[in-house]
């Protein structure tokens, strides 16, 4: 167990090191002078020279790379060109809506998809099973921004059930801000429920085919007990995997959904950063999100240990 943990931690460190390396070189891929690119066409050569020096771009690339790695390890992801603030601070300032949006939509996706997925597997081949698979495939095919705009128009503008957009203004109360996240969370929840549903259904199908279910049935155990006590208990485990899997989907979805509903989160920040050519912010977001992804996947694997007694590392 201890050696497994050590191996996983080393593996994680290697992947995060590569993530940092990729994020560093992506920005250096840009053709031409990055400083001139960041400043835009109106900047003079002097401005570019000053920025180059500020960012350390006048040094050899290897020196820049080592400095970047050293700073990143200490939690310093550089300074935003637009906000003139440390990137970590800028990201933290925008984290609240994104974190809550992701949590709410994950909850909604689980509430929709887990019961339906399990039931569909239990009634395999039935009308409900086929309808749920088809709906899931449809949900995975419709662009999330389109679902968002349609629901915004009907549920918010026409029916007035939800705030149409924004985050309640700068002085809004916490609950007011959360109220603004309801519709975006529903949109993102619907989109993500497709993956959760397919996954839950597939793993429940596996479990229902297991020997111990057959044994339970052949002992004459009631069908309700077989499903509730034996199958569902083990079907809870894949939910952990799904949380790890949906993380990437949630972040991608949040970028688009925040833009649709004009929510000042990290997703909106990164799109604005692209339009402002604020490369340190883009780089910082990539690093933070990818590192979180790696960490969450490690945690979900470790959570297996706690939940599933059969798993031994």
């Amino acid at each position: 167990m201890r050696s497994y943990l050590a191996r996983r931690l080393i593996g994680m460190a290697v992947v995060i090191f590569l993530v940092l390396t990729i994020a560093f070189f992506i920005v250096r891929l840009a053709p031409g002078d990055p400083a001139a690119l960041m400043l835009g066409p109106e900047a003079t050569a002097e401005d570019a020279a000053v920025l180059r020096q500020q960012l350390g771009l006048d040094q050899p690339i290897f020196v820049q790379y080592l400095k970047f790695l050293g700073n990143a390890v200490r939690g310093d992801l550089g300074t935003s060109i637009f906000f003139k603030q440390p990137v970590t601070q800028v990201l933290l300032g925008r984290a609240e809506p994104t974190v809550f949006l992701s949590l709410f939509s994950l909850t909604i996706a689980l509430i929709i998809a887990v019961p339906i997925g399990n039931y569909a597997a239990y009634r395999r081949g039935s009308f409900l099973d086929q309808a749920s698979i088809s709906t899931a495939m449809l949900a995975a095919s419709v662009p999330s921004f389109w679902t968002g705009l349609m629901l915004q128009r009907y549920l918010a503008t026409d029916l007035g059930w939800f705030p149409a957009s924004g985050y309640g203004g700068p002085d809004a109360h916490f609950w007011e801000r959360m109220r603004h996240l309801l519709l975006p969370s529903i949109v993102l929840g619907i989109v993500n429920s497709a993956l959760v549903l397919r996954f839950t259904r597939a793993s429940m199908l596996d479990i229902l085919g297991e020997d111990y279910i057959r044994t339970a049935r052949s002992k004459g155990m009631g069908e309700a007990r077989v499903v509730l006590r034996h199958a569902l208990k083990n079907a809870a485990i894949p939910i952990i995997t799904v949380i790890g899997l949906t993380f990437a989907l949630l972040v991608s979805g949040a970028v688009v959904t925040e833009r649709v509903f004009n929510i000042p989160g990290m997703g909106n920040l990164v799109v604005s950063a692209v339009l402002r050519r604020d490369y340190p912010v883009i780089q910082g977001t990539l690093i933070v999100v990818a590192s979180l992804y790696v960490l969450i996947n490690l945690l979900t694997d470790l959570a297996y240990l706690l939940v599933d007694k059969r798993v031994r590392y």
Partner: peptide, 23 residues
């Protein structure tokens, strides 16, 4: 394999945004 793991740690839209903004 590690490189593939690292690439897959980036959510697709986010990495695509970063790449298109540069390319």
């Amino acid at each position: 394999s590690r490189l593939v793991d690292a690439m897959m740690a980036f959510p697709d839209i986010l990495l695509a945004i970063a790449l298109v903004s540069i390319l």
